[in-house]
């Protein structure tokens, strides 16, 4: 029998100990399997849906919440995902007070360069599973080019990519 409060706290803990994406997976996996509230196939389905569904990839745990505890589970896991991001507000408030000091400004520039590196790194990590053939590389190159020209709305670019997938792989 699932206890709503404990269910929520498990999801909240996982979200507090991770930085988005699948970072909360190990915690949820350990806790929910131990309690017998979720089974392995629930995780596989939730991860697959999370890759397809819109929005941040961290939303995969909403899918897991639904699979294990229906609509209340989806709602509780959404709330658990919304709480930790608020910790950014005090950090930014603190940072704004020291920003403008020359030393902080250089530090900040280093942070930004590092953040761009992380973004490229994310693309690198993703490409390990996503780029399985030459066509995938072509799609990467063409979409990057189309996005840089800023002529097409992003949804059109994604739809064209979906269409390309259908034409190439069926």
């Amino acid at each position: 029998m699932i206890q709503p409060l404990q269910f929520f706290l498990i999801f909240l803990k996982a979200s507090l100990l991770s930085f988005g994406g699948l970072g909360n997976l190990p915690f949820l996996h350990a806790d929910l399997i131990a309690l017998g509230w979720a089974q392995e196939p629930d995780f596989l389905t939730a991860i697959a849906v999370g890759q397809m569904s819109p929005g941040p990839s961290g939303l995969w745990s909403i899918s897991l919440g639904y699979l294990t505890y229906g609509w209340p589970g989806a709602a509780l896991s959404l709330i658990a995902l919304l709480v930790p991001p608020f910790l950014i507000l005090p950090l930014v408030a603190l940072y704004t007070r020291v920003d403008g000091h020359p030393g902080v400004k250089s530090f900040s520039n280093g942070l930004m360069l590092g953040a761009i590196g992380l973004l490229l790194g994310t693309a690198g990590v993703l490409s390990g599973t996503v780029i399985t053939d030459a066509w995938a590389l072509v799609i990467v190159a063409v979409t990057a080019g189309l996005a840089l020209t800023k002529r097409l709305p992003t949804i059109v670019i994604l739809l064209l990519a979906a269409l390309a997938g259908v034409v190439i792989y069926t």
Binding site: N109, L120, I131, T143, A144, A162, V166, I168, T170
Partner: peptide, 28 residues
């Protein structure tokens, strides 16, 4: 059909990320 469409969309998100990295990195 769904699988094929996803095989098109996932590389596209990598392409978008590369474009975004360039847009954000260029001014710096």
């Amino acid at each position: 059909l769904v699988k094929a469409a996803m095989r098109g969309i996932l590389p596209a998100t990598i392409g978008l990320t590369l474009a975004l990295s360039w847009d954000l990195g260029k001014p710096l």
